[in-house]
Design a binder for these strands. Structure first.
Lengths: 238, 238
DNA sequence: TTGTATTTAATTATATACAATTTAAAATAA
DNA sequence: TTATTTTAAATTGTATATAATTAAATACAA
């Protein structure tokens, strides 16, 4: 714990401006954001379990930083709904109840419907190509049987669709909602039996989007989410 | 700056348990939350203007606290989209563009539609009564010509509707969106010419909700929001 | 034993101190 | 004058110190 505060920045590396003219020197991230991402990752992957206390000194030692960036990261997680604060007792990983998941799913359905509707009207030709590539990539990944890679490809694909809505607020909110279900969605995607269906659902969404057929797209997305919901609910019961 | 950290808690008041048996002694709020609310209020009312820098020491001195709670409050405002962070330069009040407002409105329409749909199915008789009272109260308030009171009555009314959805996530998100438009909604509500229409719109919403007529309710809400949108857009152009 | 004080330890909440960085200002050279 | 360095001031980022509070452990009385 040397007391310096470098975080991803290239510091004292004898690198001059000439070395990389318009390079993105801006890979600087405040420690609070590094911690934020780390903790979020931990929560979403289940490494940090619901109900687990997040104690500042412990985390600080573990991550090799002071308590300040830890606290600031927790504030953000708090607003994101990933941790629960108990005043003067600290933070703990938010407990996810069936009710809270149902609530999230309910809202997500509405926002995904909005996203696909807007995307139909606003998606660019470029993004249609990107989406096609993402569909293909997802299919490839299912063959590798590497769940992490599959999940990543899936997130990538959905990201393209939501971004195609060109509504920044919507993008933010859908991402937040998706995040809350990440754990369960992950389990869903790990199930190889689902892969064929997922691929065909993606295909259907892509096609209706490419054709800018809002009605077909809405239907395809609804089916996709309903299936996801079922899978999650089944998974929750056990 | 005396260095104590009391905030709303009843401390050293010689109050015993007997004085108020099951009272809510828990009126304690961490300073960060006091600051959070204060800054948010400032931003939403326009006291803190878009683009204005939020400098920690200044705010700390102004509010009589240290930088720590200020920073933590800013982290939350950051995630809420009310302030923009520029690394190593600090926070500034988020610039509200027409585009960003349109985005918010677009999402809000979808979520309000969802809220009213759910509310139709789930609202309790009690809440129907509450809603009626809130409608009447709004009408009363318009007569006082006190904009702050009118706005408060309006917020109250909408709160009842959204809460009737019994979807906690939805409640949270709609409130966040409503917040982003507060400034402009306030201007809208100040316009006495709108009052009659607002009253009748509220009435229509109440009636369809009481009758649990989802279709009529959806229509009434749509009309209500569309009008609000128009008013805001007109106001923005000047 | 069981329940109630009392003390101790752990932890959060807040404040302050120090370091790194950026911005503004002043000085210097073209 | 206009650019370019250099210096100084302000500000953020991070770490640490202190205060207040809570939770746990212990001691004590019924």
């Amino acid at each position: 714990m040397s007391g310096n505060g470098m975080a991803g920045s290239m510091k004292g590396m004898g690198m001059t401006m000439d070395d990389n003219l318009q390079a993105n020197m801006d890979e600087y991230l405040p420690l609070r954001d590094v911690v934020f991402k780390t903790l979020r990752q931990g929560i979403l992957t289940g490494e940090l379990k619901p109900g687990e206390r997040l104690m500042e000194i412990h985390l600080a030692n573990r991550l090799g930083v002071s308590r300040t960036p830890i606290r600031e990261a927790i504030r953000k997680l708090e607003l994101e709904g990933l941790v629960t604060m108990i005043p003067r007792r600290g933070a703990e990983v938010a407990q996810i109840t069936i009710k809270s998941l149902q609530d999230v799913l309910e809202v997500r359905k509405a926002l995904d419907a909005l996203a696909i509707e807007l995307a139909c009207a606003r998606i660019t030709e470029e993004d249609i190509q990107l989406l096609k590539a993402a569909c293909d990539n997802f299919e490839q990944m299912t063959k590798t049987k590497d769940s992490t890679q599959i999940a990543k490809a899936d997130v990538e694909l959905h990201d393209i669709i939501v971004r195609a809505s060109h509504n920044d607020k919507l993008i933010l909110m859908v991402n937040n909602l998706a995040e809350q279900m990440y754990r369960y969605r992950f389990e869903h995607i790990k199930d190889a039996a689902q892969h064929e269906r997922l691929i065909s659902e993606h295909q259907k969404i892509y096609q209706s989007l490419a054709a800018r057929d809002a009605i077909a797209a809405a239907e395809a997305v609804k089916e996709h989410i309903d299936n996801q919901e079922k899978a999650i609910m089944i998974h929750l019961d056990k």
